[in-house]
C-alpha cells in the first residue's frame, strides 16, 4: 500500500495507469483501524492487478473534501483520474471491499 498525501495524490492516483483503490482513513475512526489489516491483506492478495493507496485524512483534510470524502471509512476506486466506484460508511466489511476489488482487478 502506498501512503498518499496532498503532495503526491495527483501523481500516484489521478495520473496512474489502471485502476487505483484509495483507502481514506483517520486515526480516530475505529472502524477504519479495524478494517486496515484486512485492506492490507487484500492489497497483498491482488498485488499487480490493482494499485493500492491510502490517505490519512487527519493531515489531508482538504484533499479528502476535494474528493468528496466527508465520512469515514471511505474506499474509492479511480481510473484515468476519474472516480469509478465507492464504498462508504460504518457498515463496510472486508468481503464488500474484496467483491469490489474483484470487479475492477485485471
Amino acid at each position: 500500500m502506498i501512503a498518499v498525501n496532498k503532495e503526491n495524490f495527483e501523481q500516484e492516483v489521478l495520473q496512474a495507469d489502471g485502476v487505483v483503490m484509495v483507502d481514506w482513513w483517520g486515526p480516530k475512526c475505529e472502524h477504519c483501524m479495524e478494517l486496515m489489516p484486512s485492506v492490507e491483506e487484500l492489497a497483498g492478495k491482488y498485488q499487480g492487478r490493482l494499485k493500492f493507496c491510502s490517505v490519512d485524512t487527519s493531515g489531508n483534510r482538504r484533499l479528502a473534501i476535494s474528493q468528496k470524502v466527508l465520512g469515514l471509512p471511505a474506499i474509492l476506486f479511480y481510473k484515468d483520474g476519474q472516480k469509478i466506484g465507492e464504498l462508504a460508511g460504518q457498515e463496510i466489511q472486508p468481503e464488500d471491499i474484496e467483491a469490489t476489488i474483484k470487479q475492477y482487478a485485471k
Partner: peptide, 18 residues
C-alpha cells in the same frame, strides 16, 4: 449524502469538518 456530510459518529468524522 451519508458519508458526504451526513454522519452518525462525531468521533469518526469530526476532524474532517475542521
Amino acid at each position: 449524502l451519508r458519508g458526504k456530510g451526513v454522519s452518525y459518529c462525531a468521533t469518526c468524522d469530526a476532524d474532517l469538518f475542521t
